[in-house]
Amino acid sequence: MRSWRHRPNLVAGLGAFVWLLVVGVPLYALLAATFQQSSEYRSAGPLALPTDPTLDNYARAIENGLAGFVLNTILVTVGVVALVVALSVTAGYAIVRTRNWMSDSTFRMFLLGLAIPNQAVIIPVYLIIVQMGLYDSLIAIVLPTAAFSLPVCILILAGSMRDISDDLYEAMALDGAGSGRTFFQLVVPLARSGISTVAVYSALQAWNGFLFPLILTQSAENRVITLGLYEFQGAYRTDIAGLLAAVVLATVPLFIVYLIARRSLVSGLMGVGGK
């Protein structure tokens, strides 16, 4: 029995190696292409090692306005995260602590938003933004992106806040704490992992959003990174190496955020189901 337990699992090792190839090969192809000239990339293929490594692709990405696109995307992301966190935390707290038919109906209404894709309502959203006088502005991207992120975020925070014991609420009440003090001193600290999950999720939605920036903006000064990548595509050719270099640079901020909040993100997602 002891020798069987210490026997190497060849099937598991083979599966892990295959998964490493699935993840590693595309990542290698992405990074290797950013150090190649466009002519070398087209002739040698995506898996070839760079024979003459160069940083021209990264320089060309910055020269084509990538810094401005990233700045606009950061502004949109910060606005979306601020709105989503503020609204979802308060809404989740009200849904969990207010146990009546109105809170249940409100929660079901938000859950209904999970079944509505943004492509299905893009025309009404466009008309609303135009009527509000917000067309071709960063706010026009922030508002609908935050609205479509709220259902998932409220679901996450409601599940996280249900894990807070009623005994803690009673202890705060006996200590003379009101609703505001209980919210800021008890609920927010204990729901920190859920809040981090909501912040990362909404940031991903804002950073990778394409449909709303495409429909609701048109000027170059309000262009975000997903639309800015079109600068590397012409009518008759595509600068693949420069495009991939821009993708790498645009991914760095999100990668840093993930490294900082990865533990809270995992624990927050584990608490979605609640008790």
Rank of each mutant, 00 (worst) to 15 (best):
N118I: 10
D104W: 15
T106R: 05
G15C: 08
S39E: 03
S219Q: 11
F35G: 04
P53S: 00
L190W: 02
A261E: 10
F212P: 04
H6I: 06
L49W: 06
L259N: 13
I215N: 01
I128E: 02
L71Y: 15
A33G: 02
A199D: 08
A220H: 04
I215A: 12
T98Q: 09
A120M: 09
I215T: 08
A158R: 10
W4E: 15
V200D: 14
M270R: 06
P124W: 13
S38D: 01
V272Y: 02
D167E: 13
G209K: 14
V84W: 00
P8C: 10
V272Q: 02
D136R: 14
L190E: 03
R263V: 02
L229G: 10
Q185K: 09
L168F: 09
V81W: 03
I129T: 07
A32W: 01
A12M: 09
R108N: 02
A158M: 08
L243R: 08
E63R: 01
L143M: 02
L186Q: 14
A246C: 02
R192F: 02
G273E: 01
L83P: 04
A246I: 01
L211V: 14
Q233R: 03
I139C: 07
I139Y: 07
V272F: 08
V200R: 08
L111F: 04
A250Q: 03
V142P: 09
A235Y: 08
Q37E: 02
L244Q: 12
L30F: 12
L75M: 04
A29C: 15
G271L: 01
F212V: 07
L216C: 00
R237K: 12
A61D: 01
Q185L: 11
F69L: 15
S103D: 05
T90F: 13
L216I: 07
R99Y: 12
L174H: 00
L216M: 13
Y135P: 01
P53K: 02
I215E: 12
Y236N: 11
A61P: 07
G268E: 05
S3F: 10
T182G: 05
A67P: 01
C153M: 03
A32V: 03
F232H: 09
N64L: 13
T182R: 04
R7N: 15
M109L: 07
A146K: 09
I256Q: 13
V81S: 01
V152S: 04
T73S: 15
I240L: 12
V121P: 08
L157Q: 08
P124D: 12
A158F: 08
V257K: 14
A245D: 02
V198D: 06
A235C: 03
L249M: 11
T145C: 00
P117W: 04
L71G: 15
P50S: 01
A203M: 10
Y230N: 13
Q218G: 15
S103P: 07
S267H: 12
Q185H: 14
D163A: 03
S165K: 00
L47C: 13
P46Y: 05
M1W: 13
L211C: 13
I74N: 10
R42H: 05
T90L: 09
A44Q: 06
T226M: 15
L138K: 13
T54L: 07
L10K: 09
A241V: 09
A115K: 00
G176R: 03
G273R: 07
V266T: 10
I256W: 14
P151G: 14
I123N: 09
L134I: 01
